[in-house]
């Protein structure tokens, strides 16, 4: 649950699990997901429990997502770009995915 403050920048459209999401230019992927209201952004490969971004500075790796078909990207370090496809990761990765 986050609210936007400050001057509004140009918006960037990305897709998250196939759903259209409007982000603010300059957002990282992790920030855009949280701003869009996602509570959890992945489930763990060990127990499958939900997780969400924790440190937002590239340290904790909780924000791992698949971006444009490349898995395990650090969402908190990568800025959104128009048309970007973000997929949340569920549990263990599978071959070919």
């Amino acid at each position: 649950m986050f609210q936007r403050v400050g001057k509004s920048e140009a918006s960037v459209i990305i897709s998250v699990d196939g759903t259209r999401v409007t982000a603010r230019a300059g957002d990282t992927v992790a920030a855009a997901l949280l701003a869009a209201g996602l509570t959890s952004t992945r489930t763990t490969p060990i127990s499958g429990t939900p997780r969400a971004p924790y440190c937002m500075m590239g340290v904790c790796f909780e924000c791992l997502v698949t971006i444009d078909d490349v898995g395990n990207r650090q969402g908190c370090l990568i800025p959104v770009s128009e048309g970007m496809r973000v997929d949340t990761q569920k549990g263990k990765r599978e071959a070919g995915r």
């Binding site: 986050f2 609210q3 936007r4 403050v5 603010r24 920030a31 701003a35 937002m56 500075m57």
Partner: peptide, 20 residues
């Protein structure tokens, strides 16, 4: 989910203007 470091929340404020 919903537990975050203070630094993480601060980064969201600085970089994206997001307030919890």
């Amino acid at each position: 989910p919903g537990v975050m470091s203070v630094g993480g929340a601060q980064t969201l404020l600085k970089a994206s203007g997001l307030v919890p």
